[in-house]
């Protein structure tokens, strides 16, 4: 049975809509516009190393890093509990973990605006409890909160799927050999769960670094991240060369790290998202 030709419409589509756009990004990033037309240049990439842009890069990585760490601290115990406790309805709980991810990403972020704003839900609750009110909307904390909220399930699911597949007999063997709970976790369970941890970290860090919606809505546009920088270059400044250069750098970085991570994480990457 061979229907090789059936792939041809897709191959045409693929070349036009996947390959050509990437070539265009490369082209724009490696040329500058002069009076005589376009000229080859690496100026766009060199501009990226100016202090203000390095600061943007640094801030993006910093915020994404903090969000990833928080996701890990919150998410690992949750995945562990779900995988290793005999709750009756673990499947339902996993499903409940996935449901919010299917709600529109913008609405999830917008919901936090309602909660965090000056006379929002959080402050109403705080004043009921006679606690001082806080205003964290349009701060870094709000941006990190938004990232943690949006990407937490991406951390929990891969760790859960690895943990739930650990052979109970391995744990039993360790216990028979005299290991206590902490040692079993440190020497057996945690090392075995590392592939899940790695793919969890990837799946949180990557979208967190590239987001421009969360920083725009919850940071109020005060926190320019790489994503915002790209958006600005294309929609406001019309410096397509520079915008393409940043995009290309980001794409190469992310595809490379995905390739490296998938070597570590094996085949289970992203399992259970749908």
């Amino acid at each position: 049975m061979s229907y090789k030709w059936a792939a041809s419409p897709y191959l045409v589509w693929m070349v036009i809509f996947i390959v050509v756009p990437i070539i265009l990004v490369c082209y724009y990033s490696l040329t500058v516009r002069t009076d005589a037309g376009f000229r080859f240049s690496t100026d766009n990439f060199r501009r990226f190393f100016e202090p203000i842009y390095l600061k943007v890069l640094y801030r993006s990585i910093e915020l994404a890093f903090v969000a990833t760490v928080v996701c890990f601290i919150l998410g690992y115990p949750l995945a562990y509990i779900l995988a290793r406790s005999d709750f009756k309805h673990t499947n339902v709980l996993i499903m409940l973990l996935v449901v919010p991810m299917w709600m529109n990403f913008l609405l999830r972020t917008y919901a936090w605006m309602t909660i965090l704003e000056q006379n929002g839900v959080l402050n109403i609750v705080l004043s009921w409890l006679r606690l001082p009110t806080i205003s964290i909307l349009y701060t870094e904390a709000a941006v990190i909160l938004g990232m943690v909220y949006n990407f937490l399930p991406f951390m929990v699911l891969p760790i859960y799927s690895v943990l739930s597949k650990i052979d109970p007999s391995v744990v039993e063997a360790a216990e028979d050999l005299g290991a206590n709970g902490i040692i079993v976790f440190r020497k057996v369970i945690f090392p075995l769960s590392l592939p899940g941890v790695i793919s969890g970290i990837t799946m949180v860090f990557m979208p967190a670094v590239t987001t421009f919606v969360i920083s725009r809505l919850l940071g109020g546009g005060q926190f320019t991240l790489i994503g915002n920088l790209i958006e600005q270059q294309f929609l406001y400044v019309s410096d397509w060369g520079f915008g393409s250069a940043i995009s290309l750098a980001m794409m190469v970085l992310i595809l490379l790290s995905m390739a490296v991570m998938s070597k570590f994480a094996g085949e289970d990457r992203g399992l259970g998202l749908w």
């Binding site: 990004v25 724009y28 590239t210 393409s244 995009s247």
Partner: peptide
């Protein structure tokens, strides 16, 4: 990242 897919298609 979505943003890269988005801008590359826009360029096209």
């Amino acid at each position: 990242p979505d943003i890269v897919t988005g801008i590359s298609l826009m360029l096209l």
